[in-house]
Amino acid sequence: MQIKFDQVSADYQLGPIRAKNIIDDVSLQIAPATFTAVIGQTGAGKTSLLKLINGILRPTSGSIQVGEFTLDHSANKATLNQVRSRVGMVFQFPENQLFAETVEADIAFGPKNFNFSAEEVDQSVYRSLERVGLDQSLLKRSPFSLSGGQQRRVALAGVLATKPDILVLDEPGAGLDARGKQEIFALIKKLNQQDRVTVLVVTHDMNDVAIYADHVLLLDQGKVITYQETRAFFSDQDQLTEWNLELPDTLHLQRQIEQRTGINFKQTSLTRTELIDQLIEEKLL
């Protein structure tokens, strides 16, 4: 599904105090089945942007078009719930939302809320458990008896089970080991490519951005600084310096090799394979 922001502003009301425009006049169009990495400094408004797509945070002005639904300041509960049934949101540290007695019941919670039939619920529970790479023997266990990494997967499965067309994730790799993180990202990528799910992921790791995302959305103080394709984004060195962004490891390596050898590679390499290919092409390997 497509997502379209039209001059959206939003803030949080803290009792009497209003934080001023946490999201500030954002206009943006995200094509279906794309994989967007949302980056920006802490407090830039990344999480808030994701919440807007899911109707958890409502805009103070402007509107957001999610598929055929429109979210604006006065969106009603029915619309919000419909949007939420299409948009899966994985919060930061989602394992903190587990509550049911068994893993099975927890994963089934979302689908039941969205009125899946009993068979559909069963089917999607098994399917999403398999998706996140957990064994069926865990279904009857209590989610609280699992390891942190397993809990994270159960929580993720709980969101996937609602079969969303759009998946937004807030730092899904935070607090996981390198391997666990890579697996989660690979899984998201697979959903994106096979099921054509539109994905937005908040991450602080440029390597994830380079390897998995096809678009990059850079936020600062609630404003969109840039939204462009990943390769184009990483190709413009001057801009990256200006925005004070780190390079992904492979690109960093490429830049160093280029400096040492004086050869300028044709392409910006985002993955290891790409870098090796270019090294071979330039007869450096």
């Binding site: 509960k77 719930n81 948009v87 949101m89 903190n96 939302q97 979302g110 609602t162």
Partner: peptide
Amino acid sequence: DETQKVLDAQRARGVV
């Protein structure tokens, strides 16, 4: 704060 977060998370899972 935590209550707000859990509230949001369960809302996202379809609780009204």
